[in-house]
Protein backbone atom coordinates (compact mmCIF):
# COMPACT_ATOMS: atom_id res chain seq x y z
CA UNK A 1 0.00 0.00 0.00
CA UNK A 2 1.36 3.37 -1.00
CA UNK A 3 2.10 5.90 1.65
CA UNK A 4 0.39 9.29 1.54
CA UNK A 5 3.69 10.88 0.65
CA UNK A 6 4.11 8.53 -2.30
CA UNK A 7 0.56 9.23 -3.48
CA UNK A 8 1.09 12.97 -3.34
CA UNK A 9 4.36 12.57 -5.21
CA UNK A 10 2.72 10.39 -7.88
CA UNK A 11 -0.04 12.95 -8.31
CA UNK A 12 2.27 15.97 -8.42
CA UNK A 13 4.90 14.43 -10.68
CA UNK A 14 3.08 12.19 -13.15
CA UNK A 15 4.85 10.77 -16.18
CA UNK A 16 3.31 12.82 -18.98
CA UNK A 17 4.13 13.35 -22.64
CA UNK A 18 4.96 16.93 -23.60
CA UNK A 19 2.18 17.47 -26.16
CA UNK A 20 0.40 19.78 -23.72
CA UNK A 21 3.55 21.91 -23.48
CA UNK A 22 3.66 22.25 -27.27
CA UNK A 23 0.00 23.38 -27.21
CA UNK A 24 0.81 25.95 -24.52
CA UNK A 25 3.92 27.23 -26.32
CA UNK A 26 2.28 27.45 -29.75
CA UNK A 27 -0.94 28.86 -28.33
CA UNK A 28 0.62 31.54 -26.16
CA UNK A 29 3.08 32.44 -28.93
CA UNK A 30 0.15 32.94 -31.29
CA UNK A 31 -1.76 34.82 -28.61
CA UNK A 32 1.15 37.22 -27.98
CA UNK A 33 1.56 37.69 -31.73
CA UNK A 34 -2.11 38.62 -32.16
CA UNK A 35 -1.96 40.82 -29.06
CA UNK A 36 0.96 42.79 -30.47
CA UNK A 37 -0.49 42.96 -33.99
CA UNK A 38 -3.91 44.12 -32.77
CA UNK A 39 -2.43 46.98 -30.75
CA UNK A 40 0.20 48.20 -33.23
CA UNK A 41 -1.62 51.37 -34.28
CA UNK A 42 -2.55 52.29 -30.69
CA UNK A 43 0.60 51.15 -28.89
CA UNK A 44 1.92 54.65 -28.14
CA UNK A 45 -1.59 55.98 -27.52
CA UNK A 46 -2.11 53.36 -24.79
CA UNK A 47 1.38 53.15 -23.33
CA UNK A 48 3.05 56.48 -24.03
CA UNK A 49 3.93 59.26 -21.62
CA UNK A 50 2.67 62.82 -21.33
CA UNK A 51 1.82 64.34 -24.68
CA UNK A 52 1.16 61.13 -26.57
CA UNK A 53 -0.99 58.76 -24.52
CA UNK A 54 -4.64 58.73 -23.54
CA UNK A 55 -3.46 58.43 -19.91
CA UNK A 56 0.11 59.21 -19.00
CA UNK A 57 1.95 55.96 -18.28
CA UNK A 58 3.64 57.61 -15.28
CA UNK A 59 0.34 57.51 -13.38
CA UNK A 60 -0.13 53.74 -13.57
CA UNK A 61 3.58 53.15 -12.99
CA UNK A 62 3.44 55.43 -9.94
CA UNK A 63 0.55 53.44 -8.49
CA UNK A 64 2.42 50.21 -9.27
CA UNK A 65 5.48 51.53 -7.41
CA UNK A 66 3.38 52.00 -4.29
CA UNK A 67 2.71 48.25 -4.35
CA UNK A 68 6.12 47.16 -5.51
CA UNK A 69 9.02 49.04 -7.05
CA UNK A 70 10.48 45.79 -8.40
CA UNK A 71 7.91 44.90 -11.06
CA UNK A 72 9.25 45.42 -14.61
CA UNK A 73 7.73 48.32 -16.53
CA UNK A 74 8.27 50.35 -19.67
CA UNK A 75 9.44 53.34 -17.60
CA UNK A 76 12.65 51.47 -16.79
CA UNK A 77 13.40 51.05 -20.47
CA UNK A 78 12.51 54.65 -21.37
CA UNK A 79 14.79 55.90 -18.58
CA UNK A 80 17.60 53.75 -19.91
CA UNK A 81 16.84 54.92 -23.44
CA UNK A 82 16.85 58.53 -22.27
CA UNK A 83 20.39 58.13 -20.93
CA UNK A 84 21.48 56.69 -24.25
CA UNK A 85 19.75 59.44 -26.22
CA UNK A 86 16.95 57.20 -27.51
CA UNK A 87 13.52 58.80 -27.71
CA UNK A 88 10.50 57.42 -25.84
CA UNK A 89 8.76 56.62 -29.12
CA UNK A 90 11.73 54.54 -30.25
CA UNK A 91 11.79 52.63 -26.96
CA UNK A 92 8.06 51.90 -27.23
CA UNK A 93 8.57 50.67 -30.80
CA UNK A 94 11.43 48.50 -29.56
CA UNK A 95 9.20 46.91 -26.90
CA UNK A 96 6.47 46.26 -29.47
CA UNK A 97 8.93 44.83 -32.02
CA UNK A 98 10.61 42.78 -29.29
CA UNK A 99 7.29 41.28 -28.26
CA UNK A 100 6.40 40.54 -31.87
CA UNK A 101 9.76 38.88 -32.65
CA UNK A 102 9.79 36.90 -29.40
CA UNK A 103 6.27 35.63 -30.04
CA UNK A 104 7.14 34.55 -33.60
CA UNK A 105 10.17 32.66 -32.32
CA UNK A 106 8.04 31.12 -29.59
CA UNK A 107 5.60 29.83 -32.19
CA UNK A 108 8.51 28.39 -34.17
CA UNK A 109 10.05 26.92 -31.04
CA UNK A 110 13.42 28.51 -31.61
CA UNK A 111 15.45 29.34 -28.49
CA UNK A 112 12.31 28.39 -26.56
CA UNK A 113 13.43 29.26 -23.04
CA UNK A 114 14.88 32.67 -23.96
CA UNK A 115 11.91 33.62 -26.12
CA UNK A 116 9.41 32.47 -23.47
CA UNK A 117 11.17 34.73 -20.94
CA UNK A 118 11.31 37.66 -23.38
CA UNK A 119 7.65 37.29 -24.37
CA UNK A 120 6.65 37.24 -20.69
CA UNK A 121 8.90 40.21 -19.92
CA UNK A 122 7.77 42.46 -22.81
CA UNK A 123 4.13 41.61 -22.23
CA UNK A 124 4.47 42.16 -18.47
CA UNK A 125 6.10 45.58 -19.04
CA UNK A 126 3.20 46.59 -21.30
CA UNK A 127 0.60 45.23 -18.87
CA UNK A 128 2.04 46.85 -15.77
CA UNK A 129 2.71 50.20 -17.43
CA UNK A 130 -0.76 50.28 -18.95
CA UNK A 131 -2.47 49.56 -15.65
CA UNK A 132 -5.62 51.50 -16.58
CA UNK A 133 -6.01 49.95 -20.02
CA UNK A 134 -5.66 46.27 -19.20
CA UNK A 135 -8.35 43.65 -18.67
CA UNK A 136 -8.66 39.92 -18.00
CA UNK A 137 -6.83 38.78 -21.10
CA UNK A 138 -3.59 40.38 -19.87
CA UNK A 139 -3.68 38.58 -16.53
CA UNK A 140 -4.32 35.21 -18.13
CA UNK A 141 -1.49 35.80 -20.60
CA UNK A 142 0.84 36.65 -17.72
CA UNK A 143 -0.21 33.49 -15.86
CA UNK A 144 0.29 31.27 -18.91
CA UNK A 145 3.61 32.84 -19.91
CA UNK A 146 4.94 32.67 -16.34
CA UNK A 147 4.31 28.91 -16.22
CA UNK A 148 5.64 28.44 -19.74
CA UNK A 149 9.00 30.04 -19.00
CA UNK A 150 9.59 27.69 -16.05
CA UNK A 151 8.29 24.57 -17.79
CA UNK A 152 10.82 22.08 -19.23
CA UNK A 153 11.23 23.50 -22.71
CA UNK A 154 11.83 22.66 -25.52
CA UNK A 155 8.96 20.34 -26.42
CA UNK A 156 9.31 17.74 -29.15
CA UNK A 157 7.52 19.86 -31.82
CA UNK A 158 9.86 22.82 -31.45
CA UNK A 159 12.65 23.71 -33.87
CA UNK A 160 15.01 23.58 -30.89
CA UNK A 161 14.34 19.85 -30.63
CA UNK A 162 13.98 19.02 -34.32
CA UNK A 163 16.68 21.24 -35.76
CA UNK A 164 19.02 22.14 -32.92
CA UNK A 165 18.71 18.70 -31.23
CA UNK A 166 18.32 20.21 -27.76
CA UNK A 167 16.65 18.12 -25.07
CA UNK A 168 14.86 19.50 -22.02
CA UNK A 169 17.09 19.70 -18.97
CA UNK A 170 14.27 18.99 -16.54
CA UNK A 171 12.17 16.44 -18.40
CA UNK A 172 10.85 14.92 -15.19
CA UNK A 173 8.95 18.14 -14.47
CA UNK A 174 6.72 18.01 -17.57
CA UNK A 175 3.89 16.42 -15.60
CA UNK A 176 4.43 18.70 -12.61
CA UNK A 177 3.93 21.90 -14.61
CA UNK A 178 0.80 20.49 -16.21
CA UNK A 179 -0.52 19.83 -12.70
CA UNK A 180 0.25 23.45 -11.82
CA UNK A 181 -1.74 24.73 -14.81
CA UNK A 182 -4.59 22.30 -14.15
CA UNK A 183 -4.82 23.28 -10.49
CA UNK A 184 -4.73 26.98 -11.30
CA UNK A 185 -7.54 26.69 -13.85
CA UNK A 186 -9.62 24.69 -11.36
CA UNK A 187 -9.26 27.47 -8.79
CA UNK A 188 -10.00 30.18 -11.37
CA UNK A 189 -13.27 28.59 -12.50
CA UNK A 190 -14.39 27.52 -9.05
CA UNK A 191 -14.02 30.97 -7.52
CA UNK A 192 -15.22 32.74 -10.68
CA UNK A 193 -18.34 30.54 -10.71
CA UNK A 194 -18.88 30.90 -6.98
CA UNK A 195 -18.75 34.70 -7.25
CA UNK A 196 -21.37 34.56 -10.01
CA UNK A 197 -23.56 32.19 -7.95
CA UNK A 198 -23.79 34.92 -5.30
CA UNK A 199 -25.38 37.36 -7.77
CA UNK A 200 -29.11 36.92 -8.33
CA UNK A 201 -28.83 38.08 -11.94
CA UNK A 202 -27.00 34.94 -13.06
CA UNK A 203 -29.91 32.73 -11.95
CA UNK A 204 -32.61 34.54 -13.90
CA UNK A 205 -30.65 35.35 -17.05
CA UNK A 206 -30.60 39.12 -16.51
CA UNK A 207 -26.81 39.22 -16.07
CA UNK A 208 -26.31 37.36 -19.33
CA UNK A 209 -28.61 39.82 -21.09
CA UNK A 210 -26.78 42.78 -19.52
CA UNK A 211 -23.37 41.35 -20.39
CA UNK A 212 -24.39 40.94 -24.03
CA UNK A 213 -26.04 44.35 -24.54
CA UNK A 214 -23.54 46.31 -22.49
CA UNK A 215 -21.23 48.58 -24.52
CA UNK A 216 -18.62 47.77 -25.82
CA UNK A 217 -19.60 44.08 -25.77
CA UNK A 218 -22.86 44.61 -27.66
CA UNK A 219 -21.78 42.78 -30.82
CA UNK A 220 -25.17 41.09 -31.19
CA UNK A 221 -28.15 43.37 -31.61
CA UNK A 222 -30.58 43.39 -28.64
CA UNK A 223 -33.37 43.01 -31.22
CA UNK A 224 -31.97 39.57 -32.04
CA UNK A 225 -31.23 38.68 -28.42
CA UNK A 226 -34.68 39.55 -27.14
CA UNK A 227 -36.18 36.92 -29.46
CA UNK A 228 -34.26 34.30 -27.49
CA UNK A 229 -34.92 35.73 -24.03
CA UNK A 230 -36.47 32.45 -22.88
CA UNK A 231 -33.13 30.65 -23.10
CA UNK A 232 -31.21 33.30 -21.15
CA UNK A 233 -32.03 31.88 -17.66
CA UNK A 234 -30.96 28.30 -18.51
CA UNK A 235 -27.87 29.65 -20.28
CA UNK A 236 -27.00 31.78 -17.25
CA UNK A 237 -27.39 28.80 -14.93
CA UNK A 238 -25.34 26.60 -17.26
CA UNK A 239 -22.48 29.13 -17.03
CA UNK A 240 -22.67 28.88 -13.23
CA UNK A 241 -22.61 25.09 -13.41
CA UNK A 242 -19.78 24.91 -15.97
CA UNK A 243 -17.58 27.24 -13.92
CA UNK A 244 -18.34 26.21 -10.35
CA UNK A 245 -18.36 22.47 -11.06
CA UNK A 246 -15.25 22.67 -13.27
CA UNK A 247 -12.86 21.18 -10.65
CA UNK A 248 -15.26 18.31 -10.01
CA UNK A 249 -15.89 17.27 -13.61
CA UNK A 250 -12.69 18.19 -15.45
CA UNK A 251 -10.43 15.83 -13.47
CA UNK A 252 -12.28 12.50 -13.81
CA UNK A 253 -11.45 10.96 -17.20
CA UNK A 254 -15.09 9.97 -17.80
CA UNK A 255 -16.38 13.56 -17.72
CA UNK A 256 -13.26 15.43 -18.80
CA UNK A 257 -14.00 15.65 -22.52
CA UNK A 258 -17.59 16.73 -21.98
CA UNK A 259 -16.52 19.47 -19.56
CA UNK A 260 -13.66 20.58 -21.75
CA UNK A 261 -16.03 20.87 -24.71
CA UNK A 262 -18.46 22.90 -22.60
CA UNK A 263 -15.83 25.31 -21.30
CA UNK A 264 -14.16 25.77 -24.70
CA UNK A 265 -17.59 26.39 -26.27
CA UNK A 266 -18.34 28.95 -23.58
CA UNK A 267 -15.12 30.84 -24.34
CA UNK A 268 -15.72 30.59 -28.07
CA UNK A 269 -19.15 32.15 -27.49
CA UNK A 270 -17.65 34.90 -25.30
CA UNK A 271 -15.12 35.65 -28.03
CA UNK A 272 -17.63 35.77 -30.86
CA UNK A 273 -20.70 37.23 -29.15
CA UNK A 274 -18.91 39.83 -27.03
CA UNK A 275 -16.03 40.72 -29.36
CA UNK A 276 -13.49 39.53 -26.79
CA UNK A 277 -11.52 37.47 -29.29
CA UNK A 278 -8.18 37.56 -27.47
CA UNK A 279 -9.77 36.74 -24.12
CA UNK A 280 -11.68 33.82 -25.60
CA UNK A 281 -8.55 32.57 -27.35
CA UNK A 282 -6.25 32.65 -24.32
CA UNK A 283 -8.80 30.78 -22.19
CA UNK A 284 -9.22 28.12 -24.87
CA UNK A 285 -5.44 27.74 -25.13
CA UNK A 286 -4.99 27.36 -21.37
CA UNK A 287 -7.82 24.81 -21.15
CA UNK A 288 -6.64 22.76 -24.11
CA UNK A 289 -3.07 22.71 -22.78
CA UNK A 290 -4.19 21.75 -19.28
CA UNK A 291 -6.89 19.19 -20.01
CA UNK A 292 -6.76 18.51 -23.75
CA UNK A 293 -5.59 15.20 -25.21
CA UNK A 294 -1.95 14.60 -24.34
CA UNK A 295 -0.83 11.97 -26.79
CA UNK A 296 2.44 10.13 -26.51
CA UNK A 297 4.29 10.45 -29.79
CA UNK A 298 6.45 7.89 -31.52
CA UNK A 299 9.60 9.58 -30.36
CA UNK A 300 8.33 10.12 -26.84
CA UNK A 301 11.30 9.04 -24.87
CA UNK A 302 11.30 7.60 -21.43
CA UNK A 303 13.74 10.24 -20.30
CA UNK A 304 10.94 12.81 -20.52
CA UNK A 305 9.31 11.11 -17.58
CA UNK A 306 12.37 9.83 -15.80
CA UNK A 307 14.06 11.88 -13.11
CA UNK A 308 17.04 13.81 -14.37
CA UNK A 309 19.77 14.38 -11.90
Amino acid sequence: MKTLRQRVSDWLFPAEPDTWLAVLRLGLGLQALLYAASLRSDWEYLLGGAGSAIVNRDLSEGILSLESPFVPRIGWLTSLGGRLGVSEGAVLSFVWAGLLCASIMLVAGLFCRATAILTWLFHLCATKSGGFVVYGVDRFMTIGLAYLMFAPLPDRYSLDRIWRRISPTRGDLIGFFRRVLQTHLSIIYFFGGLAKCLGSGWWNGSNLWRALIRPPFNVVSPDVLVKYKAILPPLGISILVIETAYPFFIWPKRTRNVWLTCVVSMHLAIGLLMGMYLFGLVMMILNLAAFGPNTRGADQDSKAAAPVS
Binding site: V71, G192, A195, K196
Partner: peptide
Protein backbone atom coordinates in the same frame (compact mmCIF):
# COMPACT_ATOMS: atom_id res chain seq x y z
CA UNK B 1 2.39 40.83 -10.08
CA UNK B 2 5.08 38.76 -11.79
CA UNK B 3 2.82 35.72 -11.86
CA UNK B 4 -0.41 37.52 -12.80
CA UNK B 5 -2.13 36.41 -9.59
CA UNK B 6 -2.70 39.80 -8.00
CA UNK B 7 -6.50 39.59 -8.01
CA UNK B 8 -9.42 37.19 -7.97
CA UNK B 9 -11.38 35.92 -10.94
CA UNK B 10 -14.85 37.29 -10.37
CA UNK B 11 -15.35 38.80 -13.81
CA UNK B 12 -18.92 40.06 -14.31
CA UNK B 13 -19.63 38.86 -10.77
CA UNK B 14 -21.60 38.82 -8.63
CA UNK B 15 -23.64 40.98 -11.03
Amino acid sequence: HLGGIEGGYGYFAPN
